[in-house]
Amino acid sequence: MKLKGIVNLLPFALMLALLAAGCAQQADSTAKAPAQQTAQQADPNVYTGPIGGKSNKAKTISMTVGKGDDAKDVMLRFDDNTEGLEYAKKGEAAIIKWEQRGDDKYATIIKPKLAKLPEGVTEIKADELYKMLSDHVPMFLADARPEMRYDQGHLPSAVSIPVPLLKEKKAKVLPKDKNQLIIFYCGGYT
C-alpha cells in the first residue's frame, strides 16, 4: 500500500482535523458537560451537536442538540453572511451561533467542534499507525464504531469494541497487561 503522493497530504490533514471533530464529539460533550452547560446558560443562542444535513437550495441546516432523551433536532436558516458554512457537514459536530429573525433562527457563525483528547491519551496519525503495523509493533487496535461499521471495513488486525461494549464489559474486553499499547479509532460522528 502506498500514499498517493504529497498532494494528497494537505486535504488529508484537513480531513483529519474535521473528522477529529466528529470522532470526539460524544466523549467531549460528556467530559465537558458542566462547562458546556455554563456556556449555554451564558449564551442561549449557541447550538452544539452533530449536523444532520444541509440544504443549499432551502438554505437550511438541521442539527441535533442535547443528549439522550433531551436530544432534539433543530432547523436553522443560513444566508450569504453566515460564516463557516464549510463546517456544516453531515455527520460532523459543529458549534453554531444563531440569532432570531422573525419566525426563523439564522446561523451567523459556524465553527467545527474540535477533538479534545482525554487526559493522558495521545493522538496517532495514519502514517505512523501504518508503519507500526508494518513493523509488527505489539499493540491492541480497537475499532470503537458500531459493529456493523466494523464488519463493513476495518483496519488490519483491529478488533471491534464499540463504546457500549466497553462500558458494559470494561477491562474484560481489553488486554490483561495494563501497560500494553492500546489504540482506538472510529469513523467520525456516525
Partner: peptide
Amino acid sequence: NVRAFLGGEPAW
C-alpha cells in the same frame, strides 16, 4: 499506554 487515531477509518 492509550492512544487515539482520531482520523479513524475514513482517514486510513
